[in-house]
Amino acid sequence: MGPFGRALELIGTLDSRVLEVVGLSLAVSVAAASLAALFALPTALALGLGRFPGRRALRAVVRALMMVPAVLIGLLAYLMLGRGGPLGALGLLYTPTAIVLAQAVLAYPLETALFLAAFEQVDPLLLDATRTTGGGRRWVARAAVRQAAPALFAAGLTGFARVLGETGMTMMVGGNITGETRTMTTAIAAETMRGAFELALALGILLLLLSLAVNVALLFLEPGNDARAR
């Protein structure tokens, strides 16, 4: 049996090493994408619905932040969380929390930009309709979120897919510690480097399936994505 066959066997027998890594990966990336969304949503609402000077400049900044390489965020997170860093006392380096924080920072500009795009698809008339009922900004924001909900969910899912596949930064702040901070990507990288291909392949197949599943989900979200008014 070649490495590919053994990889399938690992998946088929629900090998504990595989399950553990996949579980941690999913948990960490869901948490990171959600944390990012928690901050991205108000940012996108303010930039998308608000009327204040500097709004356009801030939108440009968000787009620019999307281009920051993950490895740079990894370096900054390492310096912040590391022993000598300002947050070193918290002892977060090489913990799943560190991975969540770094991945959230990575996902934040991406999700903000996608949320913004989702809000831009909302017919302004729907917001005016909410204004004319006498509701203030809070209600206008509620209306926008409701109308854009499928697109917002799709944006969150895209953020999740982005951080799930991230490797270098996750390695830097997580450390790929077996049973503690090994994610699918860092495990694949580490296993491949030491020539143990079957686990790497098994995780690779699962990662591929997960990305596929996310993309299928995005596809299904698209028709309901129609946030235009009638």
Binding site: A129, A143, A149, A227, R230
Partner: peptide
């Protein structure tokens, strides 16, 4: 104001 399009939310 009731608009000339329904402007109903999801």
């Amino acid at each position: 104001l009731v608009f000339d399009r329904p402007a109903l939310l999801r």
